[in-house]
Computed example of a mutant assay.
Amino acid sequence: MTRRTAPDQVTVEVVELFGEVVARYHAEYDRAAAAQSLTGAAARVLSLLTLEPLPMRRIATRLKCEPSNITGIVDRLEARGLVERRADPGDRRVKLAAPTEEGLRVAAELRESLDFAREPLGALAPEERLVLRGLLRRMADA
């Protein structure tokens, strides 16, 4: 069994700061979603779909949840006219969820209302944001 060493104080502080930033982001994201009469999960699905239409299974993988949960969320988004299902051009047996024009509008309003996500980054110079992005990508890929 490998013995783990205690993290240094800087690592502990960085982890705590990450937790604080993530918690504040999620709280604001949930408030912004509620202003659009969406749950946080539904808003995340809609935002993800603005990048590209996706099958339910891939949405579930990206958001780290069960495909059956995604199906319910997509059903509710579809009932509101924010998402539509369409055949995958590469495999007509597969259905993709894709945002409608209204869904794109709601997702844009949601993004625009997220002040906290922009404010801390706005305090950084463009070069600092590039460094931060690179560091976060390295951490995510580790």
Rank of each mutant, 00 (worst) to 15 (best):
P67R: 02
T100K: 07
E20D: 11
Q36P: 08
R44P: 00
D88H: 11
V45P: 04
E101S: 14
G90S: 11
E84A: 13
V94M: 06
L17Q: 14
L46N: 05
R138F: 12
R86T: 08
V12Q: 11
G90A: 13
R58G: 00
R86L: 15
D115I: 03
A107Y: 04
V15N: 04
R138V: 00
Y25P: 00
L48H: 09
R86N: 00
L51W: 11
L54R: 14
L51D: 12
N69F: 08
V106C: 07
E128Y: 01
Y25F: 09
D91I: 01
T50V: 13
R24Q: 12
A117E: 09
L114V: 04
T61M: 01
L63N: 07
P99W: 01
A108N: 02
R76Y: 03
C65A: 04
A23V: 00
A142Y: 07
R93C: 00
F116V: 06
P55Y: 06
A33P: 13
D75Y: 09
L136N: 00
E20M: 11
L82P: 03
F18E: 07
A87K: 14
S68M: 07
D30E: 12
E84N: 03
L114T: 03
E78H: 09
S68H: 09
R62T: 14
S37Q: 10
T100V: 10
V94L: 08
P7Y: 10
K64A: 15
F18A: 11
L104Q: 15
A23D: 02
V14A: 15
P99V: 13
S47T: 10
R31K: 08
V10W: 12
V83F: 06
G103H: 02
L124E: 03
G134R: 06
V131H: 02
A140P: 02
R44I: 00
A140V: 09
V14G: 02
V74F: 07
G19P: 05
A60D: 08
P89A: 06
R92T: 09
G72N: 15
A43G: 15
G134L: 05
V83R: 06
A107D: 08
K64F: 05
V106Y: 11
Q36S: 15
E128S: 13
V22S: 09
V74R: 03
E78M: 05
E28R: 07
I70T: 11
I73P: 04
L63I: 05
L82H: 05
A6T: 05
L110Q: 03
A98S: 13
T61H: 06
G19Q: 08
P120Y: 15
K64C: 05
A42L: 09
P126T: 03
A97S: 14
L110K: 04
A79W: 01
A41R: 15
V94R: 14
L124R: 04
R80Y: 05
V45N: 05
R93F: 04
R57N: 12
A43P: 07
L46P: 07
R105M: 02
M139C: 06
A43Y: 12
D75C: 00
L104K: 15
